[in-house]
């Protein structure tokens, strides 16, 4: 028995009927074609599937699509605004914060929330904030570096991040 849901994804209202067991990540990838969100495990450990749900990062493999009914989702595809990369995306690029790229969407989504909650984190706080995201390539070194760099850019030029801040606020962040 399918259930109707209405979810705002990256600012766009999506209405659909889903099987109750459809995971949010499958809804995003299969129904909406937003394949930037990845599936890396089946036990909620790896964080490749992290998206923001009403502003809070969640593992979209541990959330049913029906649980997102009436809520707003931001995925990696929704971060860049008007063709401008989000400062966190830019910092990952500048600092070689990715290699194979598979964990990257989840990492970046986690870091956007981390920096929103703690705009000036220490390296140890960044590492603690990445507990729910596994990367097998980088040894985390450059992800931490990228996060600290993004914090600096966002502090130095808050104007450049306005668009994204608004976007996150629109999703309840």
């Amino acid at each position: 028995m399918k259930v109707p849901i209405k979810v705002t994804v990256n600012g766009k209202v999506c209405e659909s009927e889903v099987e109750p067991r459809t995971l949010l990540v499958h809804f995003l990838r299969e129904e909406l074609g937003l394949t930037g969100t990845k599936i890396g495990c089946d036990t909620s450990q790896c964080g490749a599937c992290v998206v923001r749900l009403d502003g809070a990062t969640v593992k979209s493999c541990t959330c049913l699509a029906v649980q997102a009914d009436g809520m707003a989702v931001t995925t990696i595809e929704g971060l860049a605004q008007n063709g401008n990369l989000h400062p966190v995306q830019e910092a990952f690029w500048d600092n070689h914060g990715l290699q194979c790229g598979y964990c990257t969407a989840g990492m970046i989504m986690t870091v956007t929330e981390l920096l929103q909650r703690n705009p000036h984190p220490s390296a140890d706080e960044v590492r603690a904030g990445l507990e729910g995201n596994i990367c097998r390539c980088t040894g985390y070194h450059n992800i931490v570096k990228a996060t600290l760099a993004a914090a600096e850019t966002m502090a130095a030029a808050p104007a450049s991040t306005t668009a994204t801040t608004e976007a996150t606020e629109a999703t309840g962040g």
């Binding site: 937003l34 394949t35 930037g36 969100t37 990845k38 599936i39 995925t75 990696i76 595809e77 971060l79 860049a80 990369l85 995306q89 990952f92 690029w93 500048d94 070689h96 990715l98 790229g101 598979y102 990257t104 969407a105 970046i108």
Partner: peptide, 17 residues
């Protein structure tokens, strides 16, 4: 900086699945 990164940091890269 890497030339393959733009597609990877925006979610546009296509892996097999």
């Amino acid at each position: 900086r890497r030339r393959e990164d733009p597609r990877l940091i925006t979610g546009q890269a296509a892996y097999t699945d």
